[in-house]
Design a protein around this nucleic acid. Structure first.
Lengths: 261, 261
DNA sequence: CGAGCAATTGAACGCTGTCAACCCGAGTGG
DNA sequence: CCACTCGGGTTGACAGCGTTCAATTGCTCG
């Protein structure tokens, strides 16, 4: 069990660029409570204690595989730090990222063994893991957990359908604009015409795989937007939104492009 | 409540091209049992009787809206006959079909009011409807129902992610091939190199909206495949798969196209 | 300093969308 | 019964967006 994940899982004492290291369960519990994670927040005290007791922290390096595609997976996990990517690969190698998991996010399924997406670390990441069978046992005692998971999966389904619309009908410019706006939304509410700084936590390659295009197209569109004074490129991962109105317009329409800015 | 759906719902005595008409609850129950629908099959006798008691049949004409996008929906439904389409629309009118519902399929959500997709009748259709609150009350007594719904939504999510991969990475030829093969799979197992007949239950327009392309491209690719003796076009809705191997190859690869058939 | 990778930029090709004309079957009305 | 209309589907010509291939830059790490 945990075939692939054991192979790549890092459980070091104090390795690499880890800024701080906490005792396993303590770190886990604190983080989950802090970030309103879907697994262990707002539960009764008993359920929460149970979760903390069986949870374990794992650390992954950027690029490592947490779960392979079509692999049986026997645990669930909360992202504590870093970014994970959910991706699918075609037989000939083409691949598509179907979602990113950022810190409070949750992955894993109950009553279903096989994962149909690969889960990989897009950056160095920390994940709080819980055995699936242990979680299922917990569900038997706290039905609230299953309800919680259903709502979570429904959200995921909504997001997937939104993304299908975007991938199938929108141009690359629109997709990039939407991506930037979504990032900005994550950071916080956008103030009217106030410059907003955003951090892209993934590489151009991952951006391209998520947006269903190529790194070259991503780069071109970003520079186009920079030339049109819609955004300012600080460095490859950091941008400032100069003209938010134009970005919003760009994300849903097209045709007039950048001319009228 | 049921704002839009009441406006368009047809509850006729004996209208149009209906081939047979059964008493409401009887029809409902029989159909569900026959088709292994996710709502009322394999339940205990008591739960099943309850479901039958509160379920009602509705009939829709092709093109009618069952649920509008972003509308509150207070019922769940099984498709008994016909085809429904789940679709999303962009502000400027571009739209994408994110899924079809064929007879044993199920739609609707519990504990969530708003639907984020529009549900429309792609053909004349019969739907077996259950009030959401009644269903939720039933869930309180038969937790099995919630479990069932979770598994169903997980399947939908898988399908959505598969389709994201297809939309984002595959060519129109590959998408059409995949679509035909999926239809064939629905019909039954494909025998090796045995001709298989398939029926496309929707219009070219809906095919295009589902495959993220245009009617013109669909038409071209179908005729290409016909010229290459991969399929035979009987009429606009009926095809015969002549070279299944080629179709499978086409659905996942590309590049060599039809030259080597 | 050089190797290696990520990102950018340039040029050219090709898939696919757009626009247009045409065909065809169904429904309608004279 | 036929002419007409209308909508769905097919086919053709063409252009544009975005991919592909290729070269360059810049940064990090050893």
């Amino acid at each position: 069990m945990m075939r692939a994940s054991k192979a790549v899982c890092i459980i070091p004492a104090n390795e690499g660029r880890m800024e701080s290291y906490h005792p396993v369960t303590a770190l886990d519990n604190e983080k989950c409570a802090d970030h309103h994670c879907s697994a262990c927040v707002e539960l009764g005290a008993i359920a929460q204690q149970e979760l903390v007791r069986i949870a374990r922290v794992r650390r992954y390096r950027a690029g490592e595989t947490i779960v392979a595609e079509a692999e049986d997976i026997d645990f669930l996990g909360n992202v504590v730090s870093g970014v994970l990517r959910l991706q699918k690969t075609l037989h000939d190698g083409r691949q598509q990222i179907v979602g990113f998991l950022l810190p409070p996010d949750f992955f894993g399924r109950i009553f279903v063994k096989k994962s149909n997406v690969a889960i990989e670390a897009a950056t160095d990441a920390t994940v709080c893991c819980i055995s699936r069978v242990a979680y299922e046992r917990l569900i038997a005692r706290f039905p609230e957990l299953e309800h919680r998971m259903l709502v979570n999966v429904l959200r995921e389904l909504d997001a997937a359908q939104d993304w299908m619309l975007l991938l199938a009908t929108q141009s690359v410019s629109e997709r990039v604009a939407t991506f930037l706006l979504n990032l900005a939304k994550r950071v916080g509410v956008i103030h009217n015409s106030a410059p907003t700084n955003i951090t892209v936590p993934v590489s151009r390659r991952d951006m391209a795989a998520y947006l269903g295009t190529t790194v070259e197209s991503i780069s071109r569109k970003l520079q186009e937007m920079a030339r049109a004074r819609i955004i300012r490129v600080i460095d490859a991962q950091h941008f400032e939104i100069i003209n938010e109105k134009a970005l919003v317009a760009l994300s849903q329409h097209n045709g007039e492009e950048f001319d009228h800015v």
